[in-house]
Design a protein around this nucleic acid. Structure first.
Length: 602
RNA sequence: GAUCCCGUAGCUCAGCUGGAUAGAGCAUCUGCCUUCUAAGCAGACGGUCAGGCGUUCGAAUCGCCUCGGGAUCACCA
């Protein structure tokens, strides 16, 4: 935090000078002063009072007096119940703020050139190609995209990658059902989005499957047997074998239906505003696992059973034995991930590899990392599983097969419709062209959705109630967008006057009578790089979301209380205009990390 | 059964490596548009921070236990 380090050192010196007590500076606790007290920074003196042999009250007063006498920027102090509140000179705040306004580097972390050849890989989205995206994927995509932005903004070179699960039994199920019931339907003939069309047949497969299971059960099979013996599942498995054998017809159908899905995903990604630097396909990666299995066997980390299956013993790490290769020689899920990780390191020499994957796979990634460490790849420690929690409905967990999923496309559509309705009702777009208005509806609707999801800490499970629409008032995306538009509007107004308009440079001597709200705004803006750092460390866009909300809120209070453009008070107006401009920039910058756009008018 | 995550206002969520009287929004109620956008501002109401024990000058935060919710532990992915 601003001034924190300086104050820490000053307190350390004071303790030496006053009491001959020398302690390490991180034993000194400094925090921003709470709102209800006067001050900028607060030194907690309880633990110091023991060392100095003074009671907290006396120590606070003596320390405060010393700081005022010896530190130029400390203006005054007060002591309340063992808390030493320090007041920093207004001039210092203004000077630092105006300097920061003219210094891009304050707000943007320059990329570290040393690390340019060691990018951070962020893997996210990673959908299956048998059904459209749902709300869970939305959280994944928004988080992944935003975290990539976050890391980039804090100086990393970032590569966004999407590992598409395009092969396996699930896609065979859709293919099979389409062959049986599709009558040659395509996205073109039906007008359906490709991913939804394929999803329709995935559901159709399940219906056939269930019906067959029931018949088998009625004719005396147990449920377990029936699930294994149903003709349609056997057909799907046969299809998978054909696919692996490269059967032309099967591969052609697979390519055709996957292409439909990709076309659909493209549209959803575009609407979500997310993108990728590179796509990987499991169909191209799944064989990589075998190499690593051989390597593990060579190194004696893995072992082979009689039946030919390959395992790793993790019991000494408190886990179990884990299968790495089936007895028939085919690879399992984790085998692919092992191979893929190794290949990625060889190709990219990443400094970090971040997997944005739901917390139901915590165990998987724990094992993945552990195995790589056992194989003594030193980059294994650079793997990080960004484990986010589920989105729940009031009825509980979303389940594809029970039809209780919230479809991503429908959700986005309904958000935009809601934005349209409210915007029209408020009469905000009477002078907009149709195109401008539509762009605005989309920006607001998507802003509401994205903010709603991103403001929640990734580790926490969150609840979405489809019955209640997402708010547009209060702690929401539109509130922040509105604040931005409001500021831009003020600046447009000021720029019409010759005397106040926004200028390139600003001399800090113009305004000394800064009020409390102005100071609060300045403090919040100067906090930006610290907040960014914290958000990046914690991989948490929620930190940025909560920050920008606080900033917007503070601005609105300031806006309400003080006139900005006033030709009878030009120096004040100019200073306030600078505050406005910088607030809007900070809002825009933060929102863009969240992947949310802000409008000039709304 | 074992392991991991979570439990803060009626609802949805903040609360950083322990610090002052636990904060927002929504909902309910009350004010404020003839001055820069009322998607706003100000106020009221609302809490045994799941419960207990412990560590500490100080615990929503750290440790242990109990209760409640969820996830994972496949020759599935």
């Amino acid at each position: 935090m601003l001034f924190e380090r300086e104050l820490r050192n000053a307190v350390k010196n004071a303790l030496i000078k006053l009491y001959k007590v020398d302690i390490s500076s991180d034993e000194i606790s400094i925090q921003p002063t709470r709102k209800d007290f006067e001050g900028d920074l607060t030194v907690v003196v309880f633990n110091l009072s023991k060392l100095a042999g003074k009671n907290p009250e006396t120590l606070g007063n003596e320390l405060g007096a010393w700081l005022v006498g010896n530190e130029r920027e400390v203006e005054s102090f007060n002591v309340v119940k063992g808390f030493l509140n320090i007041i920093i000179q207004k001039e210092a705040w203004i000077r630092i703020f105006t300097d920061a306004c003219m210094d891009e580097d304050y707000w943007v972390c320059k990329p570290d050139l040393m690390m340019a050849n060691h990018p951070v890989l962020v893997e996210y989205s990673s959908p299956n190609t048998n059904k459209p995206l749902h709300l869970g994927h939305v959280r994944n995509n928004l988080l992944g995209y935003s975290i990539a932005n976050l890391l980039q903004a804090s100086g990393n070179k970032v590569q966004k990658v999407n590992l598409i699960n395009d092969r396996g039994i699930h896609i065979c199920k859709s293919m099979l059902a389409w062959m049986k019931q599709g009558n040659g339907e395509t996205p073109e003939t039906t007008g359906m989005k490709g991913d939804h069309l394929v999803g329709k047949y995935y559901v159709a497969f399940d219906a056939i499957y269930k019906a067959e299971i029931e018949i088998l059960i009625n004719s005396g099979s147990t449920e377990e047997e029936a699930k294994k013996k149903a003709p349609v599942i056997l057909e799907a498995q046969e299809m998978l074998r054909k696919w692996e054998a490269g059967d032309e017809e099967t591969v052609a159908l697979w390519k055709k239906m996957n292409a439909w899905v990709y076309d659909g995903f493209d549209k959803s990604y575009k609407m979500l505003g997310v993108d990728f630097d590179k796509f990987y396909y499991e169909s191209e990666m799944y064989l990589l696992g075998k190499e690593i299995v051989q390597l593990g066997l060579d190194r004696g980390v893995f072992y082979k059973k009689q039946d030919g299956s390959v395992w790793v013993d993790l019991t000494e790490d408190g886990l179990d034995h884990k299968l790495l290769l089936r007895s028939d020689g085919t690879s399992v899920y984790i085998t692919q991930d092992l191979g893929t990780a190794k290949k990625r390191f060889e190709d990219q020499k990443f400094s970090r590899l971040i997997y944005v994957v739901g917390n139901e796979q915590d165990y998987h990634f724990k094992v993945l990392k552990l195995i790589l460490k056992k194989m003594s790849f030193d980059w294994a420690d650079s793997l990080y599983h960004l484990s986010y929690n589920m989105v729940d409905l009031p009825s509980g967990k979303m389940k594809s097969r029970e039809g209780t999923v919230v479809d991503a496309d429908e959700l986005m559509e309904s958000m935009i419709q809601e934005a349209t309705r409210i915007t029209k009702e408020l009469g905000k777009v009477d002078d907009f062209t149709d195109q401008e208005a539509n762009e605005l509806y989309e920006m607001i609707g998507m802003g509401a959705l994205k903010y709603f999801i991103l403001k929640v800490d990734p580790e926490k499970r969150m609840l979405f109630n489809p019955e209640e629409s997402i708010d547009f008032n209060g702690n929401t995306g539109p509130f922040i967008q509105y604040t931005y538009a409001r500021i831009r509007s003020v600046i447009r107004k000021a720029n019409k006057t010759a005397s106040i308009k926004l200028e390139e440079s600003y001399s800090s001597a113009d305004y000394a009578a800064m009020n409390e709200k102005e100071k609060e705004l300045i403090k919040q803006m100067l906090k930006f790089p610290f907040v960014l750092g914290e958000a990046a460390d914690r991989y948490s866009p929620a930190v940025m979301a909560n920050y920008v909300y606080e900033l917007a809120k503070t601005f609105n209070q300031f806006y309400h209380e003080f006139p900005i453009v006033d030709e009878a008070a030009i120096p004040t107006s100019k200073f306030r205009l600078l505050l406005c401009d910088q607030t809007s920039k900070t809002i825009k910058r933060t929102m863009s990390i969240l992947g949310i756009g802000v409008p000039d008018r709304m």
